[in-house]
Write a protein that binds this DNA or RNA. Structure first.
Lengths: 112, 112
DNA sequence: TTCCATACTTACTTTTTGGTGAGTACTGTT
DNA sequence: AACAGTACTCACCAAAAAGTAAGTATGGAA
């Protein structure tokens, strides 16, 4: 998806953001990493219904877009960890607003 | 998609919000409606690359989830308009944060 | 020596999402 | 009389996203 399309697609903040964060898993991964760096196996335990393929795929994607960074400890058995970059941290206000919205929605619409 | 799945799906604010707002078009439609109520034909002009099918489909979806309301003027030729509901209005802080994030991302990553 | 855990990759299939092009019923315009 | 605009619907197809199941190399524990 990355750079090429960013140049072509009609650019607006909403499209930019949904391109970077859209899909079923990216925000969930970023949210878990907000607290502390985690290894893939820890993420898998925190988000049990993600498949291994999607986890590695999304970790790669988020790394490519610079929202997270990968650290390889070069050990055997393999050990890597992912942490938010500084720009990755800046999605936290967005997640906070999603939380506000979801709580309000549940109160007003789902259990009025 | 609606109500049934909300009960089944593991519930968390991020999932709730992406279920309600996910996809390519919903946020763009809501953003346009934030300024004023609009007829479908006006929305189509404001978002030229949406297909007519997706427009009516998403308008129906957003109506079903109570984020927008439909008003039928009962005229011929047909005339309807859509406006944000009060809960629909409450996504505006979310969009504002998407905007903050996108601008920051463009500055720091795309043109550093 | 069989099994588990690690962090992946790959091939394949299913599901979801989005797009195309046509049709409907009615009116006003040219 | 033909055509455009209105708000749709429908059948069909293409593309994208996600899921499944297996395999890779390594080392340590049972």
């Amino acid at each position: 998806m990355e750079r090429e399309e960013f140049k072509i697609t009609a650019r607006c903040p909403i499209r930019t953001t949904t391109e970077l964060l859209g899909g079923k898993w990216k925000l969930l991964i970023l949210f878990q990493l907000a607290q502390e760096p985690l290894r893939p196996s820890q993420l898998k335990r925190l988000i049990p219904d993600i498949s291994e393929k999607m986890l590695t795929q999304e970790l790669k994607n988020l790394t490519d877009t610079n929202l997270i960074a990968r650290k390889n400890f070069g050990e055997i058995p393999p050990r890597v960890e992912y942490r938010l970059t500084s720009i990755g941290h800046s999605i936290m206000p967005l997640i906070a607003e999603m939380r506000n919205f979801a709580i309000k929605y549940e109160n007003e619409i789902l259990n009025p």
